[in-house]
Amino acid sequence: MFWTTIKRIIRSGFIQFWRSSFVSLSSILVMFVTLFVIGSLMFSSVILNVALEQIKDKVDINIYFASTAQESDILAAKESISKLPEVAQVNYSSKEQVLVAFKDRHQNDSTILQSLDEIGDNPLGAILNLKAKDPDQYESIFNYLKDQSFVSKEGISIIDKINYTDTKAAIDKLTRFIRAGERLGLIFTCVMIGLSIVITFNTIRLAIYVSREEISVMRLVGASNIYIRGPFVVVGMLYGLFAGLLTVGVFYPLTYWIGKLTENFFAGVNLYSYYIANFTQIFSIIMLSGIFVGALSSYLAVRKYLTN
């Protein structure tokens, strides 16, 4: 009897969905807006994350070594800095590489190049460029470097300068910007998803309000709660299913159309490529969200008429 009941509930849901076509269409369109918002927020968060990652990537600390520092001492310092848990990456540029880069940067400045030639020897020191795992951690890394005495065999400090103090203000500003961006993005996403769900819930509630007399008749002929509620939940799931398909379908040409645009404007992220590459994941999230919101809305909306 259990399977017969399930079969009847599903059949009744499909019939109800089909026969109340106008109500179904309206509900699907409202739910489409909800799912579209959820999908758009997914794309926005991708762009925001990539943009924030790129900003994060721009934040670093350079340790300038004295030109007299031995490479072995510098590499030993690199080794010890790399072991810090806050450090994500340390790049070493030898004094020769620094000189090449310097010359390259000033290739149009003959005075500087002439001065270098006159000196004869390489006056520049090696550089360690380090990136923290989190922008907040630069301060502690800097303090570590300050406290640590990196010295040569002769006991002379091999570090000439650390540029953190100069860039501290910029790093702090960027860190605040990144944190605010992440927090605002999350709040905005939650608010929009919440609002969309409330709108969908109210639309479905309205659709079921139209059927309240029908529900009272079902109760009078002795229908159990599952028999009354079941078809409405099926209808809610169908709203979600069709709205989900519509959303996924609309995103295809839309992301194709704005893909190039986003690639140029937002840090090389092509939304179309992202959509295609992550289609299964996006499809599943949109469809499951639609079906879940539809089913839950119907379930809660019918409950009101089953309490007496």
Partner: peptide, 17 residues
């Protein structure tokens, strides 16, 4: 009567429940 069900379905519904 249930407006979205035919005469047959209205009667069948009482039997189903």
């Amino acid at each position: 009567l249930l407006p979205n069900k035919t005469a047959y379905e209205n009667i069948a519904f009482a039997m189903e429940v």
